[in-house]
Simulated assay, not measured.
Amino acid sequence: MRRSGLNPDELTIAAIIDAVSGPGSKVLVLQIHTLAIRLGLSLSAYTGSALLRGYTSLRDLRGLERVFKEILLKDVVSWNVLIMGYMKLGFVEDGERAFAEMPERNIMSQRNVFSWTVMINGYVQCREFKVALLLFREMVESWSNRPSHYTFSSVLKACAASSSLLMGRQVHSMISKRGMACDVVLSTSLIDMYAKSGDITAASGVFKSMPVKNTASWNSMIGGFARHGLGVEALEEFERMVQCGYKPDQVTFINLLSACAHAGLVEEGEKQFMLMGRFGITAEKEHYACMVDLLARAGQLDKAERLIKGMPFEPDFVIWGALLGACGLHSCLELGEVAAKGISRLRREHPAAYDVLCRVHGEKGDWTSVMELRRLMRKTKAKKQDASSWIE
C-alpha cells in the first residue's frame, strides 16, 4: 500500500494494530505508532483507542498512559479502553481513578453500560468480588445505566466465586423481570453460580430449561454435580451429552474424574480416563491429578504411586498434594514422606507437608519425630494453614 503511494487512514491504522498486537510484537506496535504520528492520525479518538489496545497487549503501562494523554477529544470508547487496560494489567487503583474521572454527562464521553461492565469485570479478574458486587449495586441504582448480558455474566461470576447465593438469586430475578432472554453464555453463568453457591437443584433447573446448549454449559452442569459429590448424576449427564452429539473436551473429563473421585467410583473413573483417547484428548497434569486423588482416596496408594511414576511429565504440587493428603487419611508414613519431599522440591518449606507428616507420626506414636518436625517448622517459619469457611 505504501509502495503504491497511498497513505493509510484511521481505519487502516486501527486494523493493523489489532492484527499485530501481542506480547511479541512490541517493535511493530511502536513502528505503527510512529507512522500514525507522522501522518497526524495519533491525536484522533479512533486511532488512539486502537493504540491503547496495542499497548495493553504489550503490557506497557507508560505507553498506555502516554497515548491517552495525546488524544485531543476523548470519547467514551477511549475512556473505556483506558479503564480496561488498567484493569487487565492489574492496576486497579488507576482504573478506579480513571472511572471516577470519566465524565458522567458529556456528549463525547459520558459513562455507558460498557464502562461499568469493564470495571465490574476488572474487579472479578482481580478477585475483588465484594467490590464488584457493590459496584453493580451502584450501577443498578443509576437508572441511566441498565445492565447488559455481559454485565450480568460478570456479576454472576462474582457471585459464584464468593458463594453469594442470595445476591445470585436477586440477579437471576432481575434478569427475568426485565424480560431479558437468557442466551447460552448467560444461562451457563447461572448454572455455574447456583452450583458453586450450593443450590444444585436450581442449577439443574436452569440447565434443563435451556433450549440450546454448548460444551461449556454441559461442563458447568457436570462440574456442579462433581462439586456436590453426585458422581452417578455426573456420569449420566455425560452420557446424555455424548448422545446429543456434543464432543467433550479436556474440562469435561477433569469434571468427570473429579466427580468419580468425590463419589469413590474407582472403576468408573479408570474407565473414563481410558476413554479420553477415543475423543482425541491427551491426558494433562490436571487429569492425572484427579486420577491420583481418586486412587489415593480409595486406599489404592501403591497404584497411585505407579501412576505418578508412569506419567509423561514431572508431577506438580497438586499431584503430590493429592497423594500426601491421602497418605494422611490412610496413615501411610513411607509414601507420605515421598510426597512431602516432592512438595518441598517444588515449594520449599510448604506447611502442608509438615502438617500431614506430623499427623501421621502422631497416629503411630512417634512423638520424637513430631517434635523434630515442629522444631523445623519454627526454624523455617512455616506456619500451619488456617481453616476457613464462607457464610453469606
Rank of each mutant, 00 (worst) to 15 (best):
C358W: 02
E314S: 13
A353W: 11
L329P: 01
L346K: 05
R345H: 08
C358N: 13
L323R: 11
Y354T: 14
G342M: 02
L323P: 05
E334F: 02
W320R: 07
E349V: 02
C358A: 12
L324E: 05
V356T: 15
G321D: 07
P351N: 13
H361G: 06
H361E: 08
K364L: 11
F317L: 12
E314H: 13
E363R: 14
G328D: 10
V318R: 12
G328T: 09
L324N: 05
K341F: 08
R347N: 15
A353M: 11
E314C: 09
I319T: 15
G336R: 04
A340D: 00
D366T: 07
H330P: 08
R348V: 13
G362F: 05
V356H: 04
D366A: 06
E337R: 07
H350V: 14
V338S: 05
R359L: 14
G365Y: 03
V318C: 09
E363N: 13
P351K: 06
R345T: 12
G365T: 00
E363M: 03
A353S: 15
L335G: 03
F317T: 04
H330R: 04
D316V: 04
L329Y: 07
H350Y: 14
G325F: 08
L329I: 10
A340H: 03
Y354W: 15
G342R: 08
C358R: 15
A339I: 05
L324Y: 08
P351Y: 14
A339K: 04
H350I: 04
L323C: 03
